[in-house]
Amino acid sequence: MSEMFLWLTEPMSQRFMARALVVTVLLGISGGLVGSVLVLRRLSLVADSFGHALLPGIAIAYLVAGPSLVALFLGGLTAGLITAAASALLTRLTRLKEDASFGALFVCLFAVGAAILSRVAAPADLTHYLFGNILGLGAADARLVALVTTITLVAVALGYRSLLLECFDRGFHRSAGGASVMTHVCILLVAVLNLVAALQAVGVVLALGLFILPAVTAALWCDRFATQLFTAATVGAVGSTIGLFISYHANLPSGACMVGSLGVIFLLSALAGPHGMLVRLVRPPRHLTEDGHEDCAG
């Protein structure tokens, strides 16, 4: 027991670890919330493309302004918005569907970004952006993450009903006077904010894991929208914190450990959760007619 206690407290004596812990918990909460909305709105692949497409924006910002946090943030944000606009154009003006447009664009942008970044940054910096380095976070990075988490929490609280309708039934949302397009834009905008915030900690490639894994884990446990959001935020915070400690003690990259830890929780849930595979195998789904209602889906 005392070993466990030490395992948890010893890293906290280091200033950078204490900061990393705060950032991890904040990112976990924020990522779980954003991820749940993305998964329920079926935008997880779009968010993945965003994550990759941010790279050239960051690379160009690095080229222009050096490793300035604000510049990187704005660069990433601009790249995300350009990707969204370009893929909307592709979808409207060609026969390509939305997922194909995003897919085609993001590999192009990722290639450009990787090429630029390899010329301007040291190789260590490149892997830093690809896979993250939470132990190298500065105070400014932590403030940025805190700001983005606050924005996310406020957006979810104020827009809860709009988000619910937008994710579940856009047609009804619109018919009930809801700002469907505005809600959609806000979802994408907050997703980009969170991606940029998560970049330092876990990197472009793994950032999505921080969003999607808590969300799909929660989906395997919850039958209510509100509890699913809450569970995803909790799983995100706890799971990535476990990953952070493992990364410290095993001297492994933080991003990989955080996402890996979330991945293990997800796999266990998929196997043994109430909506998991074991339940399905042991107890086959009931027929609706057994519930005493004569009508049946066609």
């Binding site: 619910l164 579940f168 018919s175 009930a176 039958d223 929208f225």
Partner: peptide, 29 residues
Amino acid sequence: RIAYVPQRDGLDTDFPLTVEEVVAQGRFQ
């Protein structure tokens, strides 16, 4: 005074909602 009832096909029936919660959405506006 007009309410729209969308096609069921477009809905995700695995969405985490109960019957009562869906009906309550009618009051959101």
